[in-house]
Amino acid sequence: MIKLHPTDSDLVDFVEGTLSPAKSLLVSAHCDMCNCCREKSEIFTEQLASKVFDEPEQSTSILSDFVNMFSEITEDEELASTNNNGILANPSNVLQQIIKNELRDSRNHPNLTKSDALYLDGRKFILPKTLIRFTDRLGEWSKLVGKLWQAQIDIGNGQLAQFIYMEKDGSIPEHTHKGNELTLVIDGEFSDGISQYDSGDYINLNSSHTHTPCTASEEGCLVFSVIDQPLYFTSGWAKLVNPLSNLYFKVNSGQSISISKS
């Protein structure tokens, strides 16, 4: 049962295309898992569309531009009955090429090369549609302390997306965030001292939250998360790794990791 959803205003921004790409990715993946948010998004899209097209057209002064545009768009279909430029010397070579290339293309076909699941710990995790499109950009899995595994996806623009897998009884040391941390639970359950989370939950945390995610479920837990700033560990031995926290959650080069003095 999904308890945590993006806000309506996030959904509107998402379908309008004004939400940040990273956040859009999470919202889109959440909608893959959540019927209610998917339906809402569809309704919001319809509403936006009618708002955009409701306004009656006003000016006719730019009409010549439209006439030109119309012919440019449709002229593709003009037959080459009189123009024989570019005749091919040997059409059957062309076809051989076509077939060869189509075969090559079909090997590159996203549905064939991109995996729709992640295999971890002897288990298969089915991914939301949106995230399947990114599996070919997935980096190597690396093992961290505390029964944690992490694999990163570079989504550009200084933002980092990652899959994090917590084995049973795995935990992330208590930390807070300098920026925002968005997390989508792909499969499994975990708790963090603030709340209990389940598959499909969309978790939006910022610098006002300090938490210690851990999972006690037999199955472990796979989450997908996007952070725009490194985590800051707040307690115990983990404080020691703050200067090294880029080992845990690397940010793009050029950004330095600053150490808080608290």
């Binding site: 593709d76 003009e78 080459a80 091919l88 059409p91 070579n93 062309v94 076809l95 090429q97 290339n101």
Partner: peptide, 19 residues
Amino acid sequence: FDDLPVKQKKVIEAIYISG
């Protein structure tokens, strides 16, 4: 092949012949 519109032929040539 020669009966294709010029524009389509151009695209097909570029992709399938020139790779």
